[in-house]
Simulated assay, not measured.
Amino acid sequence: MSSPEHKQKIWSLIKDIKTGMMTTRHGEELRSRPMVLVQDEYDGVLWFYTDLESEKVFELESDNDVCISFADPDDHVYVSLTGVGRAIQDKTLIDKYWNPFVAAWFPDGKDAPNVGMIEIKVVKGEHWNSDSSKMLKSVKTAKAKMKGEQPDLGEHEKFGLDK
């Protein structure tokens, strides 16, 4: 797990990206789909709305290991988080995070029987953050190659279990 400071770091990297690609296992295949964050803070758990009758929910029931990745190529920020996912129907959470964007996906409203939440408890992850432009990266890479070193292209950190 990570410290409160590190959780704030992760949140600072993903909060403006909002949409992550969640990967689940469908039999022997891996499947990814976009999921939109609904929370306004991060404490080691990510929350997303879902249709409780969707394939991703059935996939989580048979294998609850998930990976969700966030990318902002314009700002050179990349985050991959691995955790345990589950679908729940918690009216308190549904009410707490409900908004007009979510309502567009659920035309029968928040009290419809298929409205639920996906909870991902993050156990490990990795992030990259480089504020360098492509040109600066190219220069750093060329200099490092000439010196026989690896280029410093920004921050990269692994955290959690089995770093």
Rank of each mutant, 00 (worst) to 15 (best):
Q39D: 07
M21Y: 05
D43R: 04
K143C: 04
P107I: 10
F159H: 10
Q150R: 09
Q8G: 11
E155L: 03
T50K: 01
S32C: 08
G27C: 07
V38N: 06
K163S: 12
G154F: 04
K7T: 08
S3R: 07
F101Y: 07
G27Y: 02
W128I: 06
G44A: 06
P107R: 08
C67I: 12
N114D: 15
M22P: 11
S2I: 15
I68W: 01
M146D: 04
A103Y: 01
E28V: 02
L52P: 00
I68V: 13
P73M: 00
M146W: 10
K145M: 14
L30Y: 10
L13T: 10
M35E: 14
D40T: 05
A71H: 13
Y78H: 03
Q8N: 14
L13F: 15
A71S: 15
A87D: 06
A104I: 08
M22S: 03
K134M: 07
K134L: 13
V66H: 03
S62V: 14
V122C: 00
C67A: 14
M117N: 03
E5A: 12
W98L: 03
S133C: 06
K15G: 09
F101G: 12
L136P: 12
I88L: 11
P151I: 02
D90M: 12
S133P: 02
G44R: 11
K18W: 04
D162H: 07
L46T: 12
K96C: 09
M146E: 05
E28P: 02
S80E: 13
F70G: 04
K56C: 00
V36K: 01
T24P: 09
R31S: 08
K163G: 01
S54P: 04
Q89H: 13
K110I: 09
E28H: 02
D63E: 09
D51Q: 05
N129K: 05
E126V: 05
F101N: 10
H6Q: 13
K147Y: 10
V115N: 01
A71V: 09
V36N: 14
V77I: 15
G148L: 03
V79R: 08
R31C: 09
G44P: 11
D152R: 00
S132Q: 14
F70T: 06
F101C: 08
V139W: 05
M35G: 10
D90N: 15
R86F: 05
N114F: 13
L46D: 11
F70M: 00
T82L: 13
C67K: 00
H127K: 02
K9Q: 14
K124M: 12
L13C: 08
T141I: 14
D16K: 08
L13D: 05
G44I: 11
T141D: 12
E29H: 09
L93R: 03
V79N: 06
S69A: 10
M21K: 02
H26V: 11
T92Q: 11
Y49S: 01
A103F: 04
D51N: 11
K121A: 12
P107Q: 10
S80Q: 07
E157C: 00
I10Y: 09
L136R: 07
G148A: 07
E29N: 08
L37P: 13
D131R: 08
W11H: 04
